[in-house]
Design a binder for these strands. Structure first.
Length: 298
DNA sequence: CACGCCTATAAAGTGTAATG
DNA sequence: CATTACACTTTATAGGCGTG
């Protein structure tokens, strides 16, 4: 910022603005809730600063000089902009809002969190836009910090501690396969479970070992993981078109009529889903509204 | 010319914040 | 905690200017 402003008491500009609007020191004083002599003194200092008389006592009140006329509009607009910037943020009005929110989510987050929130968001805040970005866990903290994203959904185990958080729900794993799958008529035993061919979702790519395999190992058992996919959404079509089965988060399959869902024969630890955001937007009414809307839509 | 409005300025008191 | 500096206040005064 230009150094010339540091030489200037910016409050003097407020007085100047009032003076240029009123062309009258006394009325400007009333508008500013100051006494008339105070404003008179301020005018004297303004004259000093600008090296111009600004307002000259004339036949009909104070007449502005050319310099004063030149200052009036830009000054008024600048002060209005300042006032808006400094004003305590007004309550968010979703119906008239037009901002763009950037949200990082996995396909799991898209279908379990965003999908339920979207219709309500469209009707409550039709002027807003949503940009869904791929969830990149190692980048989360940095993206949030640099305002690349406003909000993210991620599991609590991997959530960057630097971000603000709100738990959305805890998730558990269920066993899913196609409707009519011969081994899923009822809940399989542990031994039957281990003989099935499994699909695993490995967001990091290519892994064949997951929490289920860890839980099995503690029981001295193993299963056969025949397919590893990177996304949850591809999983659904794989399950309906093959006899493969998968341990999946329950929310992902609860409304899917094409899938048979049963309780697994072993205890597999679930996970907690968090909504994450940066301190930067923590108190912003618009962001608060969005977060509240998402929580209510679950 | 008197009246009422205005500005400019001075003097003295008050409240607050920085400073040692 | 007392001192100091500062900005603002109120009050008083002088004087300019248009109006009836």
């Amino acid at each position: 910022m230009n150094n010339s402003l540091r030489r200037l008491d910016l409050n003097l500009l407020v007085t100047l603005n009032a003076l240029l609007a009123e062309h009258n020191v006394t009325r400007a004083a009333m508008r500013l809730h100051l006494s008339q002599p105070t404003v008179s003194v301020q005018l004297a200092r303004l004259r000093e600063v600008f090296g111009d008389p600004l307002l000259l006592p004339g036949p009909r009140g104070m007449r502005p000089t050319a310099r004063a006329d030149e200052l009036r509009e830009p000054l008024r607009q600048a002060l209005e902009a300042l006032e808006r910037a400094v004003a305590p943020s007004s309550p968010f009005d979703p119906a008239r809002a037009g901002q763009t929110w950037r949200i990082a989510a996995s396909d799991y987050g898209e279908s379990t969190i965003l999908s339920p929130a979207l219709a309500g968001l469209r009707s409550a805040a039709p002027g807003t836009r949503l940009a869904i970005l791929e969830l990149l866990p190692p980048m989360l903290a940095r993206q949030a910090e640099q305002a690349d994203i406003d909000l993210a959904f991620h599991i609590s185990a991997e959530a960057p501690p630097s971000l603000q958080r709100r738990p959305l729900f805890t998730e558990r794993y269920v066993l899913a396969g196609r409707v009519g799958h011969p081994r899923l008529k009822r809940r399989p035993t542990l031994a039957q479970f281990c003989k099935l061919d499994h699909v695993i979702v490995s967001p990091d790519g290519g892994g064949f070992h997951g929490v289920t395999d860890t839980a099995l190992a503690e029981l001295g058992m193993t299963r056969r993981v025949a397919l590893s996919v990177p996304h949850f959404l591809f999983l659904a079509s794989v399950l309906t078109s093959t006899d493969l089965v998968a341990m999946v988060p329950s929310r992902l399959v609860r409304d899917n009529d094409a899938l048979q869902v049963v309780e697994p024969p072993l205890e597999v630890p679930g996970f907690e889903m968090l909504m994450l955001w940066h301190e930067r937007v923590h108190r912003d009414p618009a962001h608060q509204w969005l977060r509240e809307h998402i929580v209510k839509s679950l």
